[in-house]
Amino acid sequence: MWLLCGDIMATPLRIVIAKPGLDGHDRGAKIVARALRDAGHEVIYTGLRRTPEQIVRTVIDEDAQFLGLSSLSGAHAHLFPRVCKLLQEADVGHIIVFGGGIIPAADRPELFEAGIKAIFGPGTSSTQINDFITTAAARNDAGCGAESDWHWGD
């Protein structure tokens, strides 16, 4: 057991999974949280109906490297950029933000522009999300405040 300890303690990534806004559909968020846990990360789930301000505070208190936002109510166009803006204002533009839920293709360019680095819709496999996490963690321009137009997929 003690031998294992060293490996595990290396650096598990800390990832906050948050549900901004008023929709109560949390199955997707919970499945993603579980998949990330099974990939060896420490996942902090916020629960439903959090404001962008609460989410930013959670990310800072937990010293997370990643933030996943889930929205199925259509409010993503307002809420996702707002969270990115608040993160940048709080001096934590290094945090990598990804989104999921029902996000029409037409809305995505604006979200990427705002600092979201990946958007995962229905049918996404957990392998895809884990590949994104691994790739983004290795880049130095994946933060939501980075001057870069890199994002996952096309």
Binding site: M1, L4, C5, D7, I8, M9, P12, A33, R34, L36, R37, D38, A39, G40, H41, E42, V43, I44, Y45, T46, G47, R50, Q54, R57, T58, D61, E62
Partner: peptide, 30 residues
């Protein structure tokens, strides 16, 4: 897997509201 699902924030609304409250989730890590 070494991973953890830290869900205590679900039931800790005050942690998100007050400047006077700092809340941190800790995994047992092996």
């Amino acid at each position: 897997s070494g991973g953890a699902l830290l869900g205590d924030r679900l039931r800790m609304e005050s942690a998100d509201l007050e400047d006077l409250v700092y809340m941190r989730s800790v995994a047992t890590r092996g």
